[in-house]
């Protein structure tokens, strides 16, 4: 890992041009990870401070966005991740693959039942469902769904094996779908399939 030699003025100028423009993206991900505005702001600030200290290690021309997300993810895992186990986690394996399909296909609805479901759900319902995911699943889900990182990029950012990224993403999806469906049933938006 060869450090580039930079004087202070160049370093600052490069950093403001290359790294700072990614603040919006880092913040929206931080909000979904940390779940509240104040922690999200702290997380982004810590990430930028750390990135700035390491700026001479950053290879100019390589993927700055992924590099910044890796730094922020590291801080999140080490300092913000809650130690308590989410109550959702225990039940993941009970959810079938294609859960939503199984539910919707049997509900008394028309050609596109999913459209009926979506039209009833609000942004906040979806955000809450994401926030309810256990940290490990939420991290990969946010990096994929919100930021559009590829499996390989997520593996590098979160320091995970490719297979682990895929399985966490898969389980995260199942959990999300179940929550959204249960929520819709509870609020009477759709009827549960007869058992």
């Amino acid at each position: 890992m060869a450090a580039r030699k930079l004087n202070d003025a160049t370093k600052r100028k490069e950093f403001e041009a290359e790294a700072l423009p990614h603040m919006d993206a880092l913040y929206r991900t931080a909000l979904r990870l940390a779940k509240n505005q104040s922690d999200a702001e702290d997380l982004v600030q810590e990430a930028f401070a750390k990135a700035y200290r390491f700026w001479d290690k950053f290879e100019l021309g390589s993927n700055c966005r992924a590099w910044l997300f890796k730094i922020m993810t590291n801080i999140f895992i080490n300092e913000y991740r809650s130690k308590s186990r989410s109550p959702l986690q225990a039940n993941i394996d009970d959810i079938d693959d294609n859960y939503l399909y199984g539910q919707l296909a049997g509900s008394e609805m028309t050609e596109n039942p999913e459209q009926t479901l979506f039209s009833k759900l609000f942004d906040d319902d979806v955000k809450k469902a994401i926030e309810n995911l256990p940290d490990d699943f939420r991290l990969v889900a946010v990096l994929s769904f919100l930021e559009g990182f590829s499996y390989q990029e997520i593996a590098e950012i979160a320091d995970l094996q490719l297979g682990t990224v895929k399985s966490r993403l898969h389980r995260g999806r199942k959990l999300l779908q179940k929550q959204l469906f249960d929520y819709a049933v509870k609020n009477g938006y759709i009827k549960e399939k007869a058992k």
Binding site: M23, D24, Y27, R28, R32, Q37, E41, N98, L100, Y101, L104, N112, P113, E114, Q115, F118, L121, D123, V126, K127, I130, V142, F145, L146, R173, L176, Q177
Partner: peptide, 24 residues
């Protein structure tokens, strides 16, 4: 495929929220 794809599009569109936040 149709249901899974639209669920995915729906979730992705909803978590992005509405434009830049005033805190930025």
């Amino acid at each position: 495929y149709r249901i899974e794809t639209s669920v995915q599009e729906f979730i992705a569109s909803r978590i992005k929220g509405n434009g830049p936040s005033p805190q930025l």
